[in-house]
Design a protein around this nucleic acid. Sequence first.
DNA 1: AAGACGAAAGTGGTTGA
DNA 2: TCAACAACTTTCGTCTT
Length: 316
Amino acid sequence: MDSREKAGRELIDTLPEKCPVCGGRRLIRSYERGEVSCAQCGAVLTEKIIDTGPEWRAFTPEEKMKRSRAGTPLISIAPEVGMSTVIEAPYKDAFGRSIDLKKRLEILRWRKWQIRSQAHSSMERNLTQAIADLERISNILGIPTNVKEEAIDTYRKAIEAGLVRGRSIESVIAASIYTACRKWKVPRTLEEIAKYTKAGRKDVSRCYRLLLRETGIRIPLPDPADFVERISETLKLSGIVQKRAAELIKKARELRLTSGKDPAGMAAAAVYIAALLEGEKRTQREIAHAAQVTEVTVRNRYKELVMGLKLDIPLT
DNA sequence: AAGACGAAAGTGGTTGA
DNA sequence: TCAACAACTTTCGTCTT
């Protein structure tokens, strides 16, 4: 595309071939209209050129890096292009003549259509940006494909509910990712996800709550039992301990000891006790670290469990 | 010395006026 | 928007093994 030059608003290539109609030497390729025509006789020779080059131009390598957007593939959808002709208010035709009523109504219908399709395409544009953010965050955190698709679905719902307007796309898509993770029980914390957005944790969590409220998506409360496996794996504890911990949690839940408490802390205490009972003792510090809570929380939950369940722990 | 325990002050989020 | 509040964290001193 070296011979491309800018003429007015049109990008033009001068081609080496002759015009098959009049034999003229100047063939013009217009990217705007997507056709090649002869400058002498005006004959249109081809239609629908597909420009495979980038639509931007870069002069330095840095600029090129900055402007290149290709890389990670889009998933699930590609935004729709087209329908960009603007139909103006139907009083005059292209030559300035006024149009009769019947024709005017017909054109009005067209305009209505067009406005709708514009609304549609603005959503698509928004989605394109959202998907880019989604891909970026997912790649860093290793989010599986099914969760990504769930996240896009969720994001669509957010757009339809009008939640994105006035908020950053990034924070809404981050909230969508978190929602999807929760739904599929992929253990990612809000912090982890928010870390890679400009918005920050607070904003993302606000969006998350809003998302749940406005779209009616139900996410089951986190179950302490879900954390047991992760904690036990990290500390290389046996399946027996896991089972024991799960039983403790079940009993604790029946006694309403778990409500309002951080499930990770609850799980940590259960694992701690289970490990003690099964003779695979780990220190509070180890447990707390594996569960990403503090020792103090482990202690508090531990105390509550021992008292609530009337466990026979040698408290020495 | 390491681990467990708990008090006190600080932090960030929720709730209700 | 603000204050009250509950849960959790941080920090630190004391006790136990």
